[in-house]
Nucleic acid binder design. Structure first.
Lengths: 239, 239
DNA sequence: GATCCACATTGATCTAGATCAACGGACGTT
DNA sequence: AACGTCCGTTGATCTAGATCAATGTGGATC
């Protein structure tokens, strides 16, 4: 089945939103849709950068690892996000599906060339890269200087914001409920903590009625203000 | 005194290398050279993004802080590097001079506009941003998962590579000597450690003849291979 | 509904690195 | 030369979070 960019669900949110109908037909020829099962890798750390892609459906993690197995999640990708390293020859991280996903894949050389010919597309790519750089720098403060409690609180706030955009969340007044697309180990790998510490921090927040945990994947923020205080400076003492 | 881009020392290394002589004359009108003394800030965290710049001379740190004073250095800038947040309205971090420096400043709106009209310039900016993103992601692994010994070793290797390009280093065979442009506290703020831990790790490396420390600012790498082993997985035991 | 299995929670203990405290050495000023 | 200031080093102690070890728990399979 031929993929059709005009009907693409991320047509208006991905970098492709920079393209007009003619250009869309042109880019359509360079592209193929690929399904990736949960747990499957799209790109391996250290590999040559041969492909880039748009996420159409699902979720991915970017990870970097040490030889002994320690792993750090350095990014998360959702539908309409761009994946891969254009204009460079190595992938410095792995990209793995967190859920069954679909991506729209380009060969990197085709993509690089197409981008150079379409400045508006390159501009979208630059904007995304700058936004991602801001986000990643924010995590450097988290990883380098925040306590476990601050990390977990910051994480919950960021996830609630990010998932608010996508369909996974229900926002009603101050009631914020969302489903994490991953388990405790991966939360730990995002925050530079262990699974046990993450668990303990979450139960602590639950005990203090800052959040509710209907089940292991769902989180409900009960007191966003307090969570924000904890995230910023840990200004929090159990009563 | 009017600045002259043609004679600019970073003409061929900065993003301006994408411009031809005519364009250089055009951009010259948008620019002014500014001297910044060591310790002085060019951009404040949280400020509106009103200016961007090229570093001409000196060195800068990018920092992000928590209210109680904890600080994380999230980037370092050297001559020819680009500073600031184009296409966005907030600076998420501060930029402070580490040494007496010179920058070539644009108003952000002028710069944004000029960039959109010059795709080659935008391309250079994208390439830099992608490279910086790779670098920052590497530090996430360091900050999230590496031990103190691994962090210090990684840092020394990265600094030796980076400073090898600039004039501050002398490379002779395996003899690598370079001058850090900052003191222990700032090394600690880069690595997410305390000053005492950094100091102890350095003396440890010195005791084991992996490095030499002629004085507080200078570092000489004696055994780069061993330093690399320590950086990657801490595969190191004092004899 | 019983069994299993993967995952999360909870508890007890340990340790890397932080914190607190003293000391030292380089440099600049009088 | 004597003095003070700023930094860095070194030592002693403390603690947040890691590690080690059970113990729950919910969902899939038969």
């Amino acid at each position: 089945m031929l993929s059709n960019c005009e009907q693409c669900v991320v047509r208006n949110k991905s970098i492709c939103s920079a393209l007009d109908p003619d250009e869309l037909i042109a880019i359509n020829r360079l592209t193929r849709k690929v399904a990736i099962k949960a747990g499957q890798a799209l790109i391996w750390e250290g590999d040559d950068s041969l492909i880039v892609a748009n996420v159409v459906e699902g979720a991915f993690k970017l990870t970097s690892s040490l030889e002994d197995g320690r792993e750090q999640i350095i990014g998360l990708l959702y539908p309409s996000d761009f994946v891969g390293r254009p204009f460079g020859d190595k992938n410095e991280y792995s990209v793995t599906a967190l859920a069954d996903s679909k991506v729209c894949v380009f060969s990197r050389s085709d993509f690089d060339e197409f981008v150079r010919e379409h400045p508006d597309l390159e501009h979208k790519l630059l904007q995304r890269t700058l936004t991602e750089l801001d986000r990643v720098r924010r995590s450097m403060l988290l990883l380098g200087r925040k306590t476990a409690a601050e990390r977990v609180a910051s994480f919950l706030l960021e996830m609630s914001e990010r998932l608010a955009d996508s369909s996974c969340s229900v926002v009603g007044g101050n009631l914020q409920l969302f489903a994490l697309p991953f388990g405790r180990q991966q939360v730990a790998d995002i925050l530079g903590l262990t699974i046990e510490t993450v668990s303990r921090q979450l139960t602590q927040l639950k005990k203090n009625d800052v959040i509710a945990l209907p089940d292991h994947r769902n989180v409900q923020i009960l007191d966003a203000g307090r969570l924000q205080d904890i995230a910023d400076a840990g200004a929090f003492t159990a009563h």
